[in-house]
């Protein structure tokens, strides 16, 4: 498997999926130097948006990575409503799709606290540094504590 996180998020953007990059990868965008193993996004869990998401990754053999049998992603208009989060594994990396973010709120609140970046002509929404800090504080795992230290230092360094 060859991971290509940028390809993964570029596919989502090109397929007009409504999403915001959150979690560790958002920290990378804000300057954190750690290496993260997956991409977390917060997205609109409407049927239309989830079907766009599925279309974006359908040729990457997406599976539910948390399911015991790692069953294939098979979203339909009928079953989309049963998901609050999607934890996927694809041929080019893990993609966690979340309907809300601890410490920030639902997708609309997350989107309202995002910034837009231009990544090689692709516009991507990324959770802003203050909201990312709030989400990391809410999670408060050991890796979140490391991220908080980096984000706070990055914020101060940027403000110099």
């Amino acid at each position: 498997m060859t991971n290509d996180f940028f390809d993964l998020i570029a596919r989502l953007a090109k397929n007009e999926v409504d999403f915001v990059i959150v979690g560790g990868f958002a920290g990378v965008v804000h300057g954190c130097t750690y290496v993260t193993q997956d991409i977390d996004i917060c997205c609109d869990f409407s049927v239309e948006n989830l079907l766009k998401l599925q279309k974006a990754v359908c040729d990457l053999n997406p599976v539910h990575r948390m399911a015991a049998n790692r069953n294939k992603l098979d979203l339909t208009s009928e079953n989309c409503g049963s998901y609050k989060n999607l934890y996927l594994d694809t041929d080019i990396g893990q993609l966690d799709c979340l309907g809300s973010i601890s410490g920030v709120g639902d997708y609309e609140q997350v989107k309202s606290k995002s910034i837009l970046i231009d990544a090689e002509g692709i516009n991507l929404r990324v959770l802003n540094i203050d909201a990312l800090l709030e989400s990391k504080k809410a999670m408060n795992r050991p890796r979140d504590k490391q991220a908080i230290l980096q984000l706070k230092a990055a914020k101060k360094s940027k403000g110099k």
Binding site: F6, V28, T36
Partner: peptide
Amino acid sequence: AGIDIDMLEANLKRSPIERIKRHQIAF
């Protein structure tokens, strides 16, 4: 806490896409 501040500050001078690319190389 052991975070390399020089590395962090050097990273902050890069654009977001440069940071993503360097992360990919590191990964």
